[in-house]
């Protein structure tokens, strides 16, 4: 036995690696753990702590208990922004995922120039939100002013659909790539077997394709849902909440109550904590429900 071990270099290597990992593992983890603490844990704890204080800067703070939360919950603009954000998220999740799926479906049929099309559809995602928002503002305003006699800053309905259009344009390409990957991973035997059994293309889509790409659906709905809820740059650049804060989404509302307050930034902080809880609850329940629909390929 001893002899065998000596003559098996790979086992020796594996054994010593395991030992090294045991000995030095913590050391190698340290940078990541440190970065995680500095970049996430510490600000997170500090942020929750600060939401109980009245402050303008971090040097001078005074404890006010739940006052910030009371102010936040009595702010009608905050609730209006929550409503607007929810409506926007529902619409954008549906639009983005439906369109992205069908583009992905079309681009896995083997038509000519698929790669080129995928690249083109993906490209808007590479542009930053502020730039995108500003450009779309100019384009949409030109159209709305010319043909509809209004403007983005004057009409919340146009603002809403403008945002949907902008975000769809930006994110459909990204979700499409995920769906394309999912579609390509469907084993050919399934499709072939279904065809031989005489499934129509609708049945094929409904009973073979969709169940097989549920993992992609989970990821895409998760991403578009959280992106929709946390949307900020595009909102700031496209409408800036105009008119009358009617198109203000939650992130922008928090930003404004934080930075536009001349006396107490704690209210913005409290709103951020409330918002965090809402996003976590929604994202986790979405994951739970779509995960249940996933099947093992």
């Amino acid at each position: 036995m001893k002899k065998l071990k000596k003559h098996n270099p790979s086992r020796i290597a594996a054994g010593s690696t395991r030992k090294s990992v045991k000995r030095y593992g913590a050391l190698f983890l340290l940078p990541t753990v440190l970065a995680f603490i500095i970049g996430f844990v510490w600000p997170f704890v500090w942020g929750i702590y600060l939401s109980f204080f009245r402050f303008r800067t971090l040097r001078f703070t005074s404890f006010t208990g739940l006052d910030n939360y009371k102010s936040a919950l009595s702010d009608s603009a905050f609730f209006r922004s929550l409503g607007f954000t929810s409506a926007f998220t529902v619409v954008s999740v549906l639009v983005i995922n439906l369109v992205a799926f069908f583009i992905a479906y079309a681009l896995t049929r083997g038509i000519r120039g698929e790669g080129g099309f995928r690249t083109i559809f993906f490209m808007p995602n590479l542009i930053g939100g502020i730039v995108l928002g500003y450009i779309w503002k100019i384009i949409l305003d030109a159209v709305i002013i010319e043909y509809l006699g209004s403007a983005l800053a004057l009409n919340a309905t146009y603002g809403f659909w403008g945002l949907v259009l902008l975000v769809s344009w930006q994110q459909i390409g990204y979700m499409m790539i995920i769906y394309v990957a999912g579609l390509q991973n469907i084993p050919g035997e399934y499709v072939e077997a279904a065809r031989i059994d005489g499934a129509s293309s609708w049945q094929l889509l409904r009973h073979i394709t969709l169940p097989s790409i549920m993992p992609s659906v989970t990821i895409c709905t998760f991403l578009s849902l959280t992106n929709g809820f946390k949307l900020f740059d595009q909102n700031l650049a496209l409408t800036d909440g105009k008119p009358f804060r009617e198109t203000e989404m939650v992130a922008l509302n928090i930003y404004k109550s934080f930075y536009e307050s001349t006396t107490n930034m704690g209210v913005g902080q409290a709103k951020a904590v409330i918002f965090f809880i809402i996003v976590v609850v929604i994202a986790l329940s979405q994951l739970y429900f779509t995960r249940r629909k996933e099947v093992q390929a």
Binding site: G241, P243, R245
Partner: peptide
């Protein structure tokens, strides 16, 4: 800032 934004929205409308 907040006060002015309100006035600007109203003036624009």
């Amino acid at each position: 800032e907040t006060w002015r934004n309100g006035v600007v929205s109203a003036l624009a409308a």
